[in-house]
Simulated assay, not measured.
Amino acid sequence: MPRWIGVDGWEVEPIVLNGRQLLRVRHLGYHIAYCRSVGKVARHVDLADLVEVVQLPTQ
């Protein structure tokens, strides 16, 4: 599952809550918001600071 991290402990990840697809925003592990769009995520964190976390296959 994709997720994005940013500077100063910001994290964004897609989730399904009550049958709805949302983006969960956390800061330093604390819940900040559930967002329905990327535009709403941008209210909390600078999107340019986010990088996707890629899991590499293990051998």
Rank of each mutant, 00 (worst) to 15 (best):
residue 1 M to H: 10
residue 1 M to N: 10
residue 2 P to N: 02
residue 3 R to S: 11
residue 4 W to I: 02
residue 5 I to L: 08
residue 5 I to P: 00
residue 6 G to F: 02
residue 6 G to I: 05
residue 6 G to S: 07
residue 6 G to T: 00
residue 6 G to C: 05
residue 7 V to P: 01
residue 7 V to E: 15
residue 7 V to K: 14
residue 7 V to D: 14
residue 7 V to H: 11
residue 8 D to R: 08
residue 8 D to G: 00
residue 8 D to H: 12
residue 9 G to Q: 07
residue 9 G to V: 06
residue 9 G to N: 03
residue 10 W to P: 02
residue 10 W to T: 01
residue 10 W to H: 12
residue 11 E to N: 00
residue 11 E to G: 00
residue 11 E to D: 06
residue 12 V to G: 06
residue 12 V to Y: 05
residue 13 E to F: 08
residue 13 E to T: 11
residue 14 P to G: 08
residue 14 P to A: 12
residue 15 I to Y: 03
residue 15 I to E: 13
residue 15 I to R: 13
residue 17 L to E: 15
residue 17 L to C: 10
residue 17 L to H: 13
residue 17 L to Q: 14
residue 17 L to M: 11
residue 18 N to D: 15
residue 18 N to V: 05
residue 19 G to T: 07
residue 19 G to Y: 09
residue 20 R to G: 03
residue 20 R to M: 11
residue 20 R to H: 11
residue 21 Q to G: 06
residue 22 L to R: 10
residue 22 L to T: 01
residue 23 L to N: 07
residue 23 L to V: 00
residue 23 L to F: 15
residue 23 L to C: 05
residue 24 R to N: 00
residue 25 V to S: 04
residue 25 V to W: 00
residue 27 H to D: 00
residue 28 L to I: 01
residue 28 L to Q: 15
residue 29 G to Q: 11
residue 29 G to A: 13
residue 30 Y to H: 12
residue 31 H to D: 10
residue 31 H to M: 13
residue 31 H to P: 04
residue 32 I to M: 12
residue 32 I to S: 00
residue 32 I to K: 14
residue 33 A to T: 04
residue 34 Y to A: 07
residue 34 Y to I: 02
residue 35 C to K: 06
residue 35 C to V: 06
residue 36 R to E: 15
residue 37 S to I: 03
residue 37 S to Q: 06
residue 38 V to N: 05
residue 38 V to C: 02
residue 38 V to F: 07
residue 38 V to H: 03
residue 38 V to D: 01
residue 38 V to E: 09
residue 38 V to Y: 03
residue 39 G to M: 06
residue 39 G to R: 12
residue 39 G to W: 01
residue 39 G to V: 03
residue 39 G to I: 02
residue 40 K to E: 15
residue 41 V to C: 06
residue 42 A to P: 04
residue 42 A to D: 09
residue 43 R to Q: 15
residue 43 R to L: 13
residue 43 R to I: 10
residue 44 H to I: 01
residue 45 V to T: 03
residue 45 V to P: 02
residue 45 V to K: 01
residue 46 D to H: 11
residue 46 D to Q: 13
residue 46 D to V: 09
residue 47 L to V: 09
residue 48 A to G: 09
residue 49 D to A: 15
residue 49 D to L: 12
residue 49 D to M: 12
residue 49 D to N: 13
residue 49 D to V: 10
residue 49 D to P: 04
residue 50 L to M: 09
residue 51 V to Y: 07
residue 51 V to A: 04
residue 51 V to N: 00
residue 53 V to W: 02
residue 53 V to R: 07
residue 54 V to L: 15
residue 54 V to T: 13
residue 54 V to F: 11
residue 54 V to W: 09
residue 55 Q to Y: 12
residue 55 Q to F: 09
residue 55 Q to E: 15
residue 55 Q to A: 12
residue 56 L to D: 12
residue 57 P to T: 10
residue 58 T to C: 10
residue 59 Q to D: 13
residue 59 Q to T: 10
